[in-house]
Simulated assay, not measured.
Amino acid sequence: MTEHLSACPSIHRIGVVGCGLMGLGIIELCARAGLDVVGTVRSPSAVEQRRARLEDSLANAAHRGKITEDEVLACLERVHFTTDLLDLADRQFVIESITENRAVKTELFTELDKIVEDPEAVLASTTSSLSIMGMGRTTNRPTHVLGVHFFSPAQTVPLVELIPSLHTDASVVDRAADFLTGPLGKEVIRSTDRTGFVVNTLLVPYLLSAVRMVESGFATPEVIDQGMRRGCGHPIGPLKLVDLIGMDVIASVANALYEEFKEPLYAPPPLLRRMVEGGLLGKKSGRGFYTYT
Rank of each mutant, 00 (worst) to 15 (best):
P221A: 09
D90Q: 10
G286L: 10
Q155C: 04
S97N: 07
G25K: 04
Y266G: 02
E96R: 08
L21S: 13
G217A: 13
D178L: 13
T40Q: 10
T40Y: 09
E259L: 11
T293E: 13
G34D: 02
V37N: 01
E55I: 06
R273W: 00
L281W: 02
G23L: 05
E100F: 02
K114F: 02
R229K: 14
D178N: 09
A154E: 08
N140E: 15
I11M: 02
A52F: 09
E77L: 10
V211H: 02
Y290P: 12
D118T: 07
Y206H: 11
F93L: 13
E107N: 09
I27P: 06
L86T: 05
R78K: 05
Q92M: 06
P235A: 09
V38N: 07
L265R: 15
E48Y: 09
Y206W: 15
V104K: 06
S129T: 12
Y266C: 03
E28F: 03
H4R: 14
T156A: 10
R78Q: 01
V204R: 00
P264M: 07
M133T: 15
R230Y: 11
Q92L: 05
T138P: 05
L208F: 03
L54Y: 07
D70V: 11
T168D: 08
L112H: 06
T156F: 12
R137Q: 14
Q226G: 14
T83P: 10
S209P: 00
R175I: 11
L241M: 11
L280S: 11
A74L: 09
G246Y: 06
T220H: 06
V249H: 03
L54H: 10
V47K: 13
L203N: 08
A251Y: 00
M135E: 12
S6T: 09
P9Y: 03
Q155A: 12
L21P: 08
P142K: 05
R32N: 09
E48P: 03
L24Q: 13
M135A: 12
R212A: 07
S285D: 05
D178S: 13
V172D: 00
A251F: 01
E107L: 05
E117Y: 07
L202T: 14
T192C: 06
R51S: 12
A177H: 11
K283D: 11
A256R: 04
T99R: 05
L88D: 04
C19H: 03
F179K: 09
T82W: 06
V188M: 14
V199M: 14
G278Q: 13
R273Y: 00
P9R: 01
L76F: 02
F151W: 07
L54F: 11
G20T: 01
S216L: 14
E48G: 15
T83D: 13
I27H: 07
S57G: 12
S131A: 08
C8K: 04
D56H: 08
L21H: 05
L207S: 06
L207A: 09
G15N: 06
T106I: 04
T168C: 08
T168I: 10
L85E: 02
A177P: 02
N101H: 06
S6Y: 09
L162E: 11
P119E: 15
K283E: 13
L86S: 10
T106V: 03
S125P: 15
N200M: 03
T127A: 11
G217D: 08
L202M: 14
L239K: 10
P164D: 04
M228E: 00
V116D: 10
L207M: 15
P119N: 15
T139R: 05
F109I: 07
S165W: 04
I224H: 01
T201C: 12
D36T: 08
L130H: 14
V204H: 00
